[in-house]
């Protein structure tokens, strides 16, 4: 019986661990991370989109470099029922100045913008929960980043 336990438990744990990590790996591509894309625009998945396990209540920084003359849409999502809101801030990667805080926009979970010059940005994300039991637990967090070349406006074409 002991031998049975010793063999079976690690096997099951590894299998479930694998299934769990697989779930998180592509989480940013899942429907839970769907972001609205204008129908007339062709946005592609940016290579620095990522999913990671994060601790509830603790800020996680995704250090990205966004290339200039491109439009971006950043969407954030978390895969656990404990979370209540996701705080999302865009911080200058060099000066650490806060450029955007979704707290000012009712914690909206996606944000579209143009980047003029290539620059490092810190995308700071905090999954927040009201439940005591959830504090310090880990959840899968996805950062969806889509990009497209800057759309020329009538004035820029002149």
């Amino acid at each position: 019986m002991n031998l049975f336990r010793i063999i079976l438990f690690p096997v099951l744990l590894l299998v479930s661990s694998h299934a769990f990590s697989q779930d998180c790996k592509d989480f940013y591509k899942s429907k839970d991370c769907y972001v609205y894309v204008p129908l007339d625009r062709d946005f592609q998945l940016y290579n620095q989109a990522k999913s990671a396990y994060v601790e509830i209540g603790k800020p996680t920084i995704f250090k990205v470099v966004l290339y200039g003359k491109k439009d971006f849409i950043v969407g954030i999502c978390a895969g656990d029922k404990y979370y209540r809101q996701i705080r999302f801030r865009i911080i200058d990667g060099i000066t650490h100045t806060i450029l955007y805080d979704n707290k000012d926009f009712d914690f909206i979970e996606s944000f579209g913008f143009t980047v003029e010059k290539t620059q490092p940005l810190d995308l700071e994300v905090t999954v927040m929960s009201k439940e005591k039991a959830a504090q310090s637990q880990k959840v899968c967090l996805g950062i969806q980043i889509l990009w497209s070349n800057v759309q020329e406006t009538p004035s820029s074409k002149k």
Binding site: Q48, E55, K58, T60, I61, V65, K81, R84, Q135
Partner: peptide, 26 residues
């Protein structure tokens, strides 16, 4: 989770001191 209404006033404040860092390299 997605149906939960927003109520920021009761939420715990964000810890500013300890942060995890993820490097999504291209």
């Amino acid at each position: 989770s997605q149906q939960t209404a927003a109520d920021s006033s009761n939420l715990k404040d964000i810890s500013q001191n300890v942060k995890d860092v993820v490097y999504p390299l291209p």
